[in-house]
Design a protein around this nucleic acid. Structure first.
Lengths: 224, 224
DNA sequence: CCCGCCGGTGAACAGAATGAACGTAACGGT
DNA sequence: ACCGTTACGTTCATTCTGTTCACCGGCGGG
């Protein structure tokens, strides 16, 4: 179940770079490249596309106009906006048109990969179960939309420590509690928990409770 | 700078409740109430609205059709969807149409207030500065958008455990006793009962008694 | 060269969520 | 009416959580 991507970008060189970036991310495949709004809409009418990598600065029309046309036609295709425009009003307009992710040019491959990964997580959520039972399940879907670049970690978190925590989780078949992760990584439980919670917030690990004996249940974490 | 809200809801009683709820939140004011898609669009054409409280189940057209019409007309009005539909595909379609918040009926005032507060925070971000400097500023805007404080449970109850209990009930066709739920969830009968009673108090499950054999009758629970 | 500051860590602590144990309540049978 | 049976509902010890605050090391300014 790979995600079909359409790259929309007028600069041929940049378009090629975007295509290559996308192909480098597992689970994504580029099904077309368009260099104008007109071309983009033609492709979108012709074949199924899951995600549009949409440059907002196009020669014939504004990128958001493509988006608007999509919505008017009843399409629910998801859009990742790519632009060098620093205008907040643009962000707002994009959000209103259902743009789920927004990437400022120029960007590193890491930032790009993070956005695609966030989208993949969101997609997994909305494709999995057909029904939701409670509000917080909906909240979780929306939470999956916000992507956390590894580059700009929240204050108080260190990239190296994060790697160790992730490595510990990957090395274990069974879920691990915060205390167990602390034991493996050599950090304290408090620190391990800090990173595990961050990973849970950004959807990269799942939380569960370990019941059984008396006393408060232990929270266990496993890679999503 | 109060936020102008349009309430769209066909049930007059519910519409009134929504209006009252909205007025109770500081910084929000209701500028209109519509009972159908047609009415809603008329109001939206007539006067400026910042946020639409949109019930998806309308008599003449589906709520998302209102949304689509808005986008086709080029409006960037924000939308908070309110619905009792538990369909994930609906959530996905809503997101694609730029619905920024999604609230499941029935909801408490606290849940409602949280969603409005999250929207107000988002709004403050996109109205403040005219320019953004870096990617992480954009990310922060999206974070404010998605990060609604989840439903606050009474002390002593855990959201994850509540999930498991609900899942167990939903998975069963027949009503389940506290002991049976305990068996499925892996928790003790005491814990299962705690959550089942909470759900019964808040009206999400129904209680009944199971007679037949000797001994005290067993209480059984079923999703309302 | 010293000092204050800031980002990352862990020790200590208040309290939150669980289950074992137990007295009590509600039923059917005699 | 009484008794045996079965589950209820509560209390409380237990264990882990989540937060606060002091520490430590490095960096930049004076």
């Amino acid at each position: 179940m790979t995600i079909r991507v359409l790259v929309v970008e007028d600069e041929p060189l940049i378009a090629d770079a975007h295509r290559e970036y996308t192909e480098r991310v597992a689970g994504f495949t580029v099904v077309g490249v368009a260099h104008s709004a007109r071309e983009a809409l033609a492709v979108l009418r012709a074949e199924p596309v899951d995600l549009v990598l949409l440059d907002l600065n196009l020669p014939d029309r504004h990128g958001l106009e493509v988006c608007r046309a999509l919505r008017a036609a009843g399409s629910a295709t998801d859009v990742l906006a790519v632009t060098s425009a620093r205008d907040i009003a643009m962000v707002r307009a994009a959000v209103a048109l259902g743009v789920t992710h927004y990437l400022l040019k120029p960007f590193t491959f890491a930032a790009f990969r993070d956005k695609l990964a966030a989208y993949a997580r969101y997609r997994a959520h909305v494709q999995a179960a057909g029904e939701v039972a409670a509000q917080h399940e909906v909240d979780r879907v929306f939470a999956a939309l916000r992507g956390g670049p590894a580059a700009s970690l929240p204050k108080g978190l260190d990239a190296g420590t994060l790697d160790r925590v992730l490595a510990a989780l990957r090395a274990s078949v069974t879920p691990l509690s915060a205390a167990e992760v602390a034991g493996v990584t050599g950090t304290s439980r408090v620190t391990a928990r800090r990173y595990l919670e961050h990973l849970a917030e950004t959807g990269r690990v799942e939380r569960a409770s370990r019941y059984g004996g008396p006393g408060r249940p232990e929270v266990e974490y496993v890679i999503a």
